[in-house]
Amino acid sequence: MTTTIIWTIAILTVLGAVLAVVLYIVAEKFKVEEDPRIDEVEKVLPGANCGGCGQAGCRAFAQFCVESSPNLDKCFCPVGGNEGMQKVAAVLGVEVAVKEPQVAVVRCNGTCENRPRTNEYGGYQSCRVKAALYSGDTGCSFGCLGCGDCVAACQFGAISMDPVTGLPVVDEEKCTACGACVKACPKAIIELRNKGRRNMRVFVSCVNKDKGAVARKACKAACIGCGKCAKVCPFDAITVENNLAYIDFTKCKLCKKCVAECPTGAIHAVNFPVIKPKPEAAPAAPAAPAAQPVKKEE
């Protein structure tokens, strides 16, 4: 009995020792030489592994940063933002330019009211599946399909579907501008735009390229490409192409002249302080929930 116990212990001990040596040798022999700075950079990253930077994850991004150092122009972690990039730069001992913070903007105002449903979709609830099948359940073949692929793509819980309008709403506090929703949207409705001064933004909330009459028939709030906004813009920020106006956010000075001029209310101005109650503000209502300051939960 005792001998059995002793033998068992002895054999296991020897086995353990031998295996430890083998493991050590293998670990030494096949060791991958890595820049220790990669670990350090990874430590200061948010660790969301969202891929918003264009790399496979935070580790890959850290490696990318170290490789492209000292020039970090192409590296930007949307989650950590400028603050995070400053930390990365500090670790690597280089300088990095401050980038304008961005936010995802939904450019469709085809609410159930503005854009009546012409048919009913009965397949798998996915915008990609729906887009591959047909133009959607409204007369507008450009607008939001409403199945929420963007909501599923967002890792930060920053997009939700508004049950009343059937459109996605971006929570600006939570949005990191990683761009996952932009990629997920088969209709290319979501765009990353500069957050703007005090979060104030003016944009065309429509991507319909149909001719004015057709677009208007499908949706009351469609951009009909009339070009009035482009004429009134003092800063040449608005271009009209394929019956659709687009406001260049780098040129826009937030004068809001176009907002008043737009006959269909397709141009939205958000986060502007309310000075006097304007009747035109009504079309912008769907964007309003996002505009309200959201209290941070932490």
């Binding site: 397949g123 798998y124 996915s126 990609r128 599946v129 591959a132």
Partner: peptide, 12 residues
């Protein structure tokens, strides 16, 4: 289960 809906996309 919407098998073909999903497989069709993956196939593409």
């Amino acid at each position: 289960i919407p098998l073909l809906d999903i497989i069709r996309l993956a196939k593409g």
